[in-house]
Design a protein around this nucleic acid. Structure first.
Length: 610
RNA sequence: GCCGCUUUAGCUCAGUCGGUAGAGCAACUGAUUCGUAAUCAGUAGGUCGGCGGUUCGAGUCCGCCAAGCGGCUCCA
């Protein structure tokens, strides 16, 4: 086993040792159960088991009690290195088939000549370590069992399903408590919860799972993001196009997506016809269509729609395109993982010499988008192919030379961009390397928000050509890029990022006018009309609730600007403004307020400009 | 898809031992006309996710199905 990236500090030892303590407790409760992996993780540890009898979260109390009991016994961790042969014999005695499988792999594939074992009390495990010297070094209150989940052995659905127990573990109780509290607070920002509370979207059984319906408030978010994308792309020389949601299946055979991608597509729609010949009547498929899982082939056909010259390049075709992907039912989650999504897509057709510049421009577009939105907690991943991947031939275009060349170009562009990035081996698209923007959701799950891919294969397969200066035909490269990802996932991130309290330019309702009493409603309506005339999204709360209740409602709905209208305001033609998150109020002439709103919206500012 | 859990009013949830369903908020009606986070009263709202079974009787027990949630290579 290669050394871990993370240092094997005390916390690592505690977590790793706690995993063994948990396993020991589980074996007490379910003797004869089989062990899988049990590593430390970012916020604790987990251990995988094949249980003789199921366990549930109701058993956590009993398990934790037993774990504390084990810790108090002060069991010593003793390690022993055994040469390969002896190690395998030892594992046979332990009757641990999964450990054995992994041991064999370590010896045969990784060339390890010896394996280490750790024993604490009655519990023996093949394990790299390191561990604490004694369980007494583990605070009895520094951990908490968190959840129980299914997990395939080695993450492969062809393997056995194991039961995984997750636990939080930290250096001491205070850190644990702080972490658990932070986690619970984060759940309040969950886009699924806020999406319902703020009427952003619903997923309706009668429509279908993974197919969100966007409510008016959510549609404002989509429209504003599209507007942003269109403006930035316009300035960068993109041209907009529009394409249908479906197309003939043959197109995807030509691109190479089918049959490889078929499991991730909705089933094909077949138009059938009855044909009668000498042998009788048969039903034959006359035409077959599929819902597109990506926009690129459509854009490629637009490129191919007329003769292209090198003088036209780069050609940048942009579209917010709706695509459909048949994700596993169990993988669907709110807006984060859906089956129908709308992508901030564009394809840049260029020569090899233009790639670097175009890639840098795309990265700069990213930078601007993220800056406007105030997104900073993400990291860039340079996703490359893995020549050693056993599934390499079906996963990647087989062209090592092109992989090496294009990865070098992207790498060079990234270094030039000055943006820090990590490498994701084996994460490339099947047609080329890419740069992904990785985000974490409130629940700690990592997802890709945006992606930029260099494609050296598909234009060739589709026979895309341009006429070069040499008057000969050449195949263009294609950059696929989606800085704002899909509306679905991107808005999920934004909801969590802002905790539902959107800046004025993005907020579904930008201003709520709150008349102090009925007799100011008419005046408020006039102000509303004036603001609407300036394209400000504004509402009047003309309910007969008390002022306090109206303020509370507006705050609960996280409306960024609340204006109270009463006697004083009506006489002076002013508004008294209360910004979301502030208790302080500020009175100003209505015209000033309107001008500041317009500026806040036009500049997409996070605060209210003067 | 697979493992586990969950599903009661629009939302959040209660419902004991199997005896035919309840609260708060929201909605609606009325009263109140209020100066910065919940005014008061009333009304309506349910095939207890669906189908089947056990039972004299099922929200409750059993089975199947559906949907949702947490997971499903941070790896001895």
């Amino acid at each position: 086993m290669e050394p871990q990236d993370a240092p094997h500090d005390d916390l690592y030892r505690i977590r790793h040792s706690l995993a063994h303590v948990l396993a020991q407790a589980v074996l007490q409760l379910r003797p004869g159960s089989t062990l899988g992996f049990g590593p430390p993780i970012d916020d604790g540890f987990y251990y995988d088991f094949i249980l003789t009898e199921p366990l549930s979260e109701d058993d956590f109390g009993e398990l934790e009690k037993r774990m504390r009991h084990i810790i108090k016994q002060g069991q010593k961790f003793e390690s022993e290195d055994l040469p390969a042969e002896a190690a395998l014999a030892r594992i046979d005695e332990m009757k641990e088939p999964y450990k054995k499988q992994y041991a064999q792999e370590l010896i045969e594939k990784k060339g390890l000549t010896s394996l280490s074992f750790y024993k604490n009390g009655p519990f023996l495990d093949m394990c790299e370590g390191p561990h604490v010297e004694s369980t007494r070094k583990i605070p009895t209150d520094c951990f908490k069992l968190r959840s129980i989940a299914g997990a395939y052995w080695r993450g492969d659905s062809r393997n056995a399903m194991m039961t995984r127990i997750y636990a939080w573990a930290f250096a001491d109780k205070a850190t644990l408590d702080a972490h658990v509290k932070a986690y619970q607070d984060a759940l309040a920002r969950d886009h699924k919860k806020l999406g319902r509370e703020l009427d952003i979207y619903v997923i309706d059984d009668e429509i279908g799972k993974g197919l969100p319906l966007w409510l008016p408030a959510g549609t404002v978010l989509r429209d504003e993001l599209e507007k942003l994308a269109k403006e930035l792309e316009f300035k960068d020389g993109y041209q907009r196009v529009a394409t249908p949601h479906l197309n003939k299946v043959e197109l995807f055979y030509k691109t190479g997506h089918l049959p490889y991608y078929a499991p991730h597509m909705y089933p094909v729609m077949e138009l059938k016809e009855t044909v009668t010949d000498a042998t009788g009547s048969h039903e034959v498929v006359k035409e077959a269509y599929c819902l597109k899982p990506m926009n690129c082939p459509h854009h490629h056909r637009i490129f191919a729609a007329r003769k292209r010259s090198y003088r036209d390049l780069p050609i940048r075709l942009a579209e917010y395109g709706q695509v459909y992907r048949f994700e596993d039912a169990g993988a669907l989650s709110g807006l984060l993982r859906v089956r129908g999504m709308c992508m901030n897509d564009a394809h840049i057709y260029c020569t090899e010499e233009q790639i670097e510049d175009e890639f840098l421009k795309v990265m700069d577009l990213h930078r601007r988008v993220y800056e406007i939105l105030g997104l900073s907690s993400y990291h860039l991943r340079f996703s490359t192919w893995d020549p050693e991947d056993p599934k390499g031939k079906e996963k990647y275009v087989d062209n090592p030379e092109a992989w090496a060349r294009t990865e070098a170009i992207v790498h060079r562009a990234m270094v030039k961009s000055g943006l820090p990035f990590s490498e994701g081996k084996g994460e490339a698209a099947f047609y080329g390397p890419k740069i992904d923007m990785q985000f974490k959701t409130v629940t700690g799950r990592e997802e890709t928000a945006s992606t930029n891919q260099l494609d050296f294969a598909v234009p060739e397969r589709l026979g895309l050509k341009y006429i070069g200066a040499d008057n000969k035909e050449h195949t263009p490269y294609c950059i696929h890029r989606a800085p704002l990802g899909t509306h679905e996932r991107f808005i999920a991130f934004l909801i969590e990022h802002y905790g539902g309290a959107f800046p004025t330019w993005l907020a579904p309702v930008q201003v709520r006018l709150v008349p102090v009493a009925d007799n100011f409603v008419e005046h408020a309506n006039k102000l509303r009309d004036a603001l609407r005339n300036e394209f400000v999204r504004v509402e009047v709360d003309d309910s007969n609730d008390t002022l306090n209740k109206k303020i509370r409602n507006a705050v609960t709905q996280k409306i960024p600007n609340i204006c109270v209208i009463g006697e004083r305001e009506m006489v002076d033609n002013t508004v008294t403004l209360r910004r979301y998150g502030e208790q302080r109020q500020e009175s100003m002439p209505f015209d000033t307020f309107a001008a500041r709103m317009k500026r806040a919206i036009a500049t997409r500012s996070r605060d209210l400009p003067e």
